[in-house]
Design a protein around this nucleic acid. Structure first.
Lengths: 234, 234
DNA sequence: ATATTTTGAATGAATATTCAGCAAGTATGT
DNA sequence: ACATACTTGCTGAATATTCATTCAAAATAT
């Protein structure tokens, strides 16, 4: 750990280039103390994601989060009561962002199921969602989810509603095109593949977002040949 | 933690029904004290998997492992020098078992690519490999893998050789049947889907091994319709 | 002046690691 | 046979470390 950061005089410099949240936040924020509270929370959540990505769940400490945010040691317990609550808030924020993202992507896609499926897959590999940093944080939570009900509930990022949506799309395509699988089964294969690709991306290995997206497309082309081609929905 | 276990007189009873490794081991080994070094190591590795599955990576303590094995607190540092080394040995053991399993499944399948692919998929959902307990342990390691090179290297359970094998099978089927995707891309979709199904199985949600296997089959039927049907290779 | 936010040292709990000693077995000498 | 030293596996109390949490005091904003 960088002990220089414990010197308050050195922190100013760090704050300037701290994390992305702060930069975004300062655009919106005035000097109002109420706004400031929410801003700090976001800043700390971003620092938590950084730490999870850099050190993994087990090695993430409040000291590291505070240092990452360019703030002092006691800060987390002031804004979130406990480490546990910070982590839950972090997961919640990621889950909200994810759900929000696929939902709006779907709305933009229009009414045709093939277009919607295409958009849903594309959303998963969008720049904003699919960063190494966030994937690593997701994976850190997945690793702990089985033994923590709170995480498990939130960790269905691709949660019940997402799964229902995929099933509905598979069912719609089946009705249109006469494929002979059951919608639930194919939806499970499909969404599992997307999750698996995330996992692989996180692991590194020179796999890029573009290549992963391509693999996902190749698979849905195979699954729905009458509706989807490599270059888009038919 | 069960404090009763700290009483040595209570341990005998625990030892009798401790973990699977010991049971297997007693077939080969003598009794109690004479348990060989290798046997103890296996016993502790099994207890580690139990603890990972029950409490997750972050909450797994040496005390819990020792208790699970029905042995005393200092035992792990005696047989493996450190917690870290115990965990690496555990991951190594799981990786070896996994690699061994798919490799022999492939040998039994005979020379035809379609048969081999079918066998490879079946191997992933085999009773012996695909238990809640082991999946949970895998996932615990995945969560830490990004930040630990040692884990990362071993965590490719579906490692380089596995991936090469899947690519080779996709290429062989393509050559036989004239599908028009690239083998590497389809292999990536396929193996990611298998991993994703593991992840889902681990998360619970009432998904069974059989249902997951079914979903995998449905997908390879869609990918290789000329070679594979729901009830087996053509 | 008051309220809010932040700091950083102190505290205490959890837990990995160490190690001196015990016990069970094994080899050697008588 | 028996005694003696030696080896190996194991124990559990003591130690050291790491880290979340607390809080009195300082800084900052209203």
């Amino acid at each position: 750990m960088n002990e220089a950061l414990r010197n308050p005089k050195m922190r100013m410099a760090v704050k300037m280039r701290a994390n992305a949240a702060q930069k975004e936040a300062t655009d919106i924020e005035k000097k109002g103390r109420k706004a400031s509270k929410e801003t700090r929370r976001l800043q700390l959540i971003e620092a938590t994601i950084d730490s999870l990505a850099k050190r993994g769940y087990a090695e993430t400490t409040l000291a590291d989060v505070a240092d990452g945010a360019g703030l002092s040691r006691g800060i987390v317990n002031f804004h979130f009561e406990s480490k546990e609550k910070l982590l839950v808030a972090t997961l919640q924020a990621m889950a909200d962002e994810y759900a929000n993202h696929w939902y709006t992507a779907l709305e933009k896609a229009g009414p045709r199921p093939a277009d919607q499926l295409w958009a849903l897959v594309a959303a998963d590999f969008d720049r904003r969602i699919c960063t190494k940093r966030k994937l690593a944080a997701w994976c850190a939570f997945w690793g702990e989810a089985k033994s923590r009900p709170t995480y498990q509930a939130l960790c269905g990022a691709r949660d019940v509603k997402y799964q229902e949506m995929v099933i509905a799309l598979c069912a719609a395509l089946k009705a249109e095109g006469g494929y002979d699988y059951t919608a639930e089964t194919m939806a499970l294969s499909l969404s599992s593949m997307l999750e698996g690709l995330w996992l692989r991306l996180m692991m590194g290995d020179g796999l890029t977002r573009e290549k992963a997206h391509e693999a996902a497309i190749e698979a849905i082309v195979a699954m729905f040949p009458k509706h989807i081609a490599r270059n888009g929905p038919k």
